[in-house]
């Protein structure tokens, strides 16, 4: 007789640990920036691209990307769009308020494998939020990487995130940073058009480049087709995919893409691993 499977873990995978809001800063009409710190004082221990589950007592729990690099100390950043129960309630948080945090969860952007290569980062809308963790990581280890190309697209100029930080990024040596808005208005004199318009404007050496793509679901197929035309290999394209990650630990079933759980095998996927998975890219 086989005994029932023994559960190795004695700790509760659903138990959040306490964290405190250090800073709150509205960014756009819908998005707010938060800085948190674990009450234990320990660093979160995350890697660029990972996410946490944020708990607000009585409201619930939601998966939120970490927007800062682990190289930036024990605190960590999030930028949250006000669209759901938890994200809505988060917009009422003030500094010193407490939340629960589980994680970090999921896969990372391959910042180690990128070393010595050019990095092309393509961010649509709030796709910049998780990619900022990679950008900061690269800037803090600048000599390890080749040319950095950052392409950012938003719907309008009012939706732009990290405006001050982008100015600083532009000043760093060997960085190409291009921004576009889908619809120009009186506050924007730059490029107008969807993000794929920016790709022909950068000079990419396809054999030396790793591409990172993060944005709304509709964006991926158009960007990837163009990257393929530019001869960037599928194995050098990384995408961060959004799904409904309820538990974060591979149990609840919500984030499934075919045989993958986005909370376990993702959210960062190598495109060549999912290119023939029919539910992955819409």
């Amino acid at each position: 007789m086989k005994e029932p499977h023994v559960c190795e873990s004695k700790s509760d995978i659903y138990l959040p640990e306490p964290a405190t809001v250090l800073q709150v800063k509205p960014m756009t009409r819908l998005e707010t920036y938060f800085k948190f710190k674990l009450n234990s004082g320990k660093p979160l221990g995350h890697r660029p691209g990972q996410f946490v589950q944020v708990s607000l007592p009585g409201i619930g729990e939601a998966p939120i990307s970490i927007s800062s690099s682990p190289t930036r100390g024990a605190s960590f950043d999030m930028v949250v769009r006000n669209v759901g129960n938890v994200s809505g309630a988060m917009h009422k948080l003030r500094s010193v308020d407490r939340v629960g945090i589980r994680g970090p969860f999921g896969t990372e952007f391959p910042v180690d494998e990128m070393k010595g290569k050019d990095v092309l980062l393509i961010c649509g809308g709030i796709g910049l939020v998780p990619v900022r963790s990679v950008i900061q990581y690269i800037l803090d280890n600048r000599e390890d990487y080749g040319r950095i190309m950052i392409l950012i697209g938003t719907k309008t100029s009012a939706d732009r995130l990290f405006i001050e930080e982008i100015k600083e990024w532009r000043r760093v040596k060997n960085i190409t940073l291009l921004e576009t808005v889908d619809h120009r208005d009186e506050n924007w004199s730059g490029i107008e058009g969807v993000i794929t318009m920016l790709l022909p404007l950068v000079k990419v050496n396809p054999s030396e480049t790793v591409a990172v793509v993060c944005g709304p679901p509709i964006m991926y197929k158009f960007v990837i087709v163009q990257l393929q035309k530019m001869k960037v290999p599928d194995a050098e394209i990384y995408v961060s995919l959004e799904r409904h990650m309820k538990c974060g630990v591979g149990k609840c079933g919500h984030c499934q893409i075919n045989q993958f759980y986005v909370c376990q095998e993702g959210p960062v996927f190598k495109f060549s691993d999912i290119s023939d998975i029919e539910e992955a890219i819409e």
């Binding site: 029932p4 499977h5 559960c7 190795e8 873990s9 995978i13 630990v249 591979g250």
Partner: peptide
């Protein structure tokens, strides 16, 4: 429920 991240509940 016992695999990977074991579920104590």
């Amino acid at each position: 429920f016992s695999a990977d991240n074991g579920d104590i509940h």
